[in-house]
Amino acid sequence: MEAAVVKPLIKVAALCGSLRKGSFNRGLLRAAIELSKEESSLKGLEIEYIDISPLPFLNTDLEVNGTFPSAVEAFRQKILEADSILFASPEYNYSVTAPLKNAIDWASRPPNVWADKSAAIISAGGGFGGGRAQYHLRQIGVFLDLHFINKPEFFLNAFQSPAKFDTDGNLIDPATKEKLMQVLLSLHAFTSRLKVNAEIMVS
């Protein structure tokens, strides 16, 4: 009898670039968390939403004797403990949002806690659905040593019919949920491969 394949536990830190309560991008992350709990194919994928709103603006004067403000220390620890990152962000002026860039910069301060983690990007907005922000984030990730999945890409025009979100910003469109599911499956598989390769190199 063939032994069942045991998938390693994958801890995902989910970050939203929008601070708005009813953010569509935050709605995408809520949907991702629900899918990870409901779908058997995502068993072992543990997604935790990490709030970036408490982070102060980056100011190296706040670094004292190698330590960071308490909110920054807590955030950096969450990123350090994660195996993977799930970014969800709208597009502001062809780029990532200021809150997300601020969070990225704090976690990149020495020692860079983004390094060698897998990542995926999802976005919702008008027009291109946040695509240009995604491409800019990928550029930033090169310097951070983040390893992004390449496919499937996920850009959602949130204003096209049929309605994608309800009035509270919750994802309600079945087709979009299926696309989100495919992103999570790809992230899960890619992160698992990276973990296995890392364990082989250590052994």
Rank of each mutant, 00 (worst) to 15 (best):
F24N: 12
N157R: 10
F155A: 07
F159C: 00
E91D: 12
S84K: 05
Y92R: 10
R20T: 01
A133T: 02
L9Y: 00
I85T: 06
N102W: 05
E178R: 09
D61M: 02
D168E: 15
G131D: 05
Q134W: 01
K7D: 10
K164A: 11
Y94L: 14
E199C: 02
F143R: 12
R193T: 06
R138Q: 14
R26A: 05
N25W: 09
K11D: 10
I149Y: 04
I172A: 04
F148G: 11
I79Y: 13
A14Q: 12
I104S: 07
I50D: 05
L144G: 14
L58A: 00
G130P: 08
A103R: 13
F190K: 12
A119Q: 07
K164Y: 01
R138G: 05
E48Y: 03
T97Y: 03
L146A: 13
A14P: 08
E81C: 06
E2R: 08
N65T: 09
E178H: 10
G141L: 03
E91Q: 13
K177C: 09
F68T: 09
D168P: 01
I10Q: 10
D105V: 05
L19A: 09
E34M: 03
A98W: 11
D116I: 01
G44D: 08
G126Y: 04
K7V: 15
L144Y: 08
G27E: 03
S70D: 15
M1P: 12
L187R: 15
G131W: 12
A14G: 09
N102C: 06
G130R: 09
I79Q: 14
L137P: 07
F148S: 11
I47E: 02
M181F: 14
A107V: 01
D173C: 10
G44T: 15
I52C: 10
S53Y: 07
V72H: 02
P152V: 12
M201P: 03
N170K: 13
Q134K: 09
A71W: 01
H188W: 07
G169V: 04
L58F: 08
F155T: 02
K21V: 06
S118H: 07
S84V: 01
N157D: 13
E91N: 10
I47C: 02
K21W: 09
A74K: 15
T67P: 00
P54G: 04
L194P: 00
